[in-house]
Design a binder for these strands. Structure first.
Lengths: 242, 242
DNA sequence: ATCATCATTATTTTCGAAAATCAACCTTGC
DNA sequence: GCAAGGTTGATTTTCGAAAATAATGATGAT
């Protein structure tokens, strides 16, 4: 069939090691906001929290550092990276630059199996989106995580046929960096919102399959729209908190 | 005056730690080809070679992994990443995409201090280039390293006034990844070749300062030309070896 | 001879203690 | 009162040994 999708965050082949577990756990806790931005991550308390020793924790933290989720200063340890609207938009715009170029190349090179993967990924995402809570309550963490995963696969599939490994690598990297911003959006959204998003995804996919050059514009607009949605979700959360 | 230039490779603030030393030493040895591509990097032998313990070595190797200089597989340790013409060109083209966009933005936003930095960086690079051996012999490792450093600062200064941190970050990242390919070029070049390069640099800088939109084309051409020069330098080295 | 199984060796990964470093507080002298 | 210097305590960083895992080679059965 086709190769699996690249993933900077996960595919490091370290599935079984404690370092990998530490990495996954820390990453989730940072993205879910268990650790607040700028909060220092003391080795001693992490050791206790996860029941691990220094070595795997340090290694995981270093990995998160290279993904810009944590900051580190020599001899003063690690702390959670801050979030800012400005950084979010900066990353979104760079993502647009990278992914639109990758998309152009994918549309040029893509064959049957690429299109097949895309359709499959879209369908898989649809199923997940339709399971979202209708009106009341928040989506569970597991639901949000599954949606996030399929969403990732879908966006990755759009550009998968690009001939450039480095573009795909950077796209994955930037996807990971924006996940942290997307999370509050996912947990507050309802099935209703998901349908809007899916409609956009469908429009983009159709344009891509038709090799319509305007597909890149649709993709860019989609990302900017997501950015705006995140901003209002954050505003909403802040209002509720107050 | 102005802020220092960003550098993914070095600026991690870990100056004094053993991890930092391990990182620098390993990086140099990989780039200089002391360790051949695909060669496994056994912890035990590295420990002996550098007189360090596991922890700093592992940390350094993980860092090099995220810079794509080494590969790692769970429970099977690390090995030097391979080199390929295809990967080189892929990286060069991506670099062009990123840097040209960054350059456009820099030309839009740049003020006096940006131009000043650029002129300074160019001059500093010129001095170094003029010290290169005229005809006979190879450039020393120290000479090549110094040239590389100033070259980096110059290219970084061109785009420094871009308003996007993420673009600058990616540009630095890609610069680091291409350094490994550039090295054989630097050690075989003579002052003669350096003058050609400096002429190109001058042309680019002048176009940039004049806010000429064609500056991006010049920059792209420069990188592609470098790629071609690397290819022929490699061919030459292979012929000499045989 | 071929294959599977087990023991041995090589190597990575993990641990917890020891050393090094930094921040804060507390003197002491002026 | 206040700066200089020193001491304590908290925290990171480093180490080398121990545990875990993969690779190699040997043994025996089919």
């Amino acid at each position: 069939m086709a190769k699996s999708f690249p993933s900077n965050a996960n595919n490091r082949g370290n599935r079984g090691t404690l370092t990998e577990r530490a990495y996954q756990a820390l990453r989730r806790d940072i993205i879910d906001g268990i650790f607040a931005p700028c909060q220092p991550l003391r080795l001693e308390s992490l050791k206790e929290r996860y029941g691990l020793s220094f070595s795997p924790l340090r290694e995981a933290l270093n990995r998160l550092h290279s993904e810009k989720l944590v900051l580190s200063t020599a001899q003063r340890g690690f702390r959670v990276a801050e979030l800012s609207r400005q950084e979010m938009w900066d990353t979104i715009e760079t993502r647009i630059l990278i992914e639109c170029e990758a998309l152009r190349r994918a549309m040029k090179n893509g064959q049957d199996d690429w299109e097949t993967q895309m359709v499959a990924a879209f369908y898989s995402l649809s199923l997940c989106a339709e399971r979202y809570p209708m009106t009341s309550g928040e989506a569970s963490a597991a639901e949000a995580e599954e949606l996030e995963a399929r969403h990732r696969v879908f966006h990755c599939s759009l550009i998968a046929a690009s001939d450039s490994q480095s573009l795909l690598h950077l796209a994955a990297q930037l996807y990971d960096q924006t996940e942290r911003y997307r999370r509050p959006l996912l947990s507050t959204q309802r099935r209703f919102d998901q349908r809007d998003f899916q409609a956009e995804h469908k429009t983009i996919m159709d344009a891509v399959m038709a090799r319509d050059p305007a597909a890149t514009d649709l993709l860019a607009a989609h990302y900017r729209q997501t950015g705006t949605a995140i901003e209002s979700a954050l505003a909403r959360l802040k209002t509720e908190a107050a």
